[in-house]
């Protein structure tokens, strides 16, 4: 317990935990919309595709400022999204194939650029690798500021366009018939999801980022049928697992932060899927059993073949 209290006073821990919590909060909110729109895996695609952008930004600008690298990531993430959407729209290739192809090709390009950078003499490229696996420990105060600013803008936009996004997510045809531009809403929401992914890259890396987007939302979905409750729960789950994951990795030696956060949020998912009232697996089993009993009590045939 004393170590835990000491940990809470530790400056590095405070920074990293704040960063992870912010990340969990933002991705929890944006992830709700991604999951409800059945675009869960877009996060996986975008985060893998961000790699060439990171390296390209470094090659072109020779600068390792997080803002610049993330800007590169944003550009290549958006480019990949554009490719995926236009392949699906203009050919018979399905969404999943287009996603897998674009994502792995972009990642390959990232590797090519990375090996290219390594051969430039005197280029201080060390640290670009951290975007593959993420290194929460390298989070600086200015990174947190960046996350906070982006996060506030995203949250403000969500609040501002709450009605539109809600309508569009659940019934885009109806939204269109009411005169909202679904094209613009789609573009805006996708853009916001991409931004949320990009700002999480530094903490959990390109591979695990998709879990940060999907898991809090899926867990929250089990507890409620209301969008605002889901978004709220999702952000709480995300933020909580960010803090718990960081604390676990600080207290246990050689426990990387990103994976710890992912394990934490996955546990929340499992608990939710099993125990959530109404939808959860246990509750469903219980209901089935009770129905059988009721049926029997009302004089139904005792041996009902189970479907």
């Amino acid at each position: 317990m004393t170590t835990f209290i000491a940990l809470l006073r530790d400056y590095t821990f405070q920074t990293v935990a704040l960063g992870s919590a912010l990340l969990g909060l933002i991705s929890g909110v944006m992830g709700s919309f991604a999951v409800l729109r059945k675009q869960s895996l877009l996060g996986d695609g975008v985060s893998h595709s961000a790699l060439p952008g990171v390296v390209m930004a470094f090659i072109l600008l020779g600068n390792k400022n997080t803002e610049i690298l993330l800007l590169g990531a944003l550009v290549s993430g958006l480019l990949a999204t554009f490719f995926i959407i236009s392949i699906v729209r203009n050919s018979r290739v399905k969404f999943d194939s287009a996603l897998a192809l674009v994502m792995s090709v972009f990642f390959g390009l990232g590797l090519v650029l990375l090996t290219y950078v390594q051969k430039i003499p005197n280029s201080n490229q060390a640290g670009l690798n951290r975007f593959i696996f993420g290194q929460a420990a390298t989070l600086l105060k200015r990174d947190i500021m960046l996350m906070a600013i982006c996060g506030s803008v995203l949250l403000a936009l969500i609040l501002l366009f709450w009605k539109e996004f809600k309508l569009f997510t659940f019934d885009s045809d109806f939204a269109q018939s009411l005169g909202f531009s679904t094209k613009k809403l789609n573009l805006m929401l996708s853009f916001m999801i991409v931004v949320a992914i990009i700002i999480g890259l530094q903490t959990v890396g390109v591979i695990l980022m998709s879990a940060m987007l999907i898991s809090p939302a899926v867990a929250a979905r089990q507890w409620t049928n209301k969008l605002w409750v889901m978004v709220l729960l999702s952000s709480i789950f995300g933020a909580a697992s960010g803090v718990v994951g960081t604390a676990a990795s600080s207290m246990v030696s050689k426990l990387p932060t990103g994976p710890a956060i992912v394990v934490c949020i996955s546990t929340i998912v499992m608990v939710s899927v099993l125990f959530a009232p109404g939808r959860g697996i246990l509750h469903r089993l219980y209901r089935r059993k009770r129905n059988k009993l009721l049926f029997k009590m009302e004089g139904g045939a005792p041996n009902v073949p189970s479907a």
């Binding site: 999951v35 999943d96 994976p259 996955s266």
Partner: peptide
């Protein structure tokens, strides 16, 4: 309880994370 793509996106990061934790430890 969740869409198929979401299921993919939950299972593999979890297993992958466990692998990375084991390797690091």
């Amino acid at each position: 309880l969740l869409a198929e793509d979401a299921a993919i996106g939950i299972v593999f990061p979890l297993l992958f994370s466990i692998a990375i934790i084991l390797i690091s430890r």
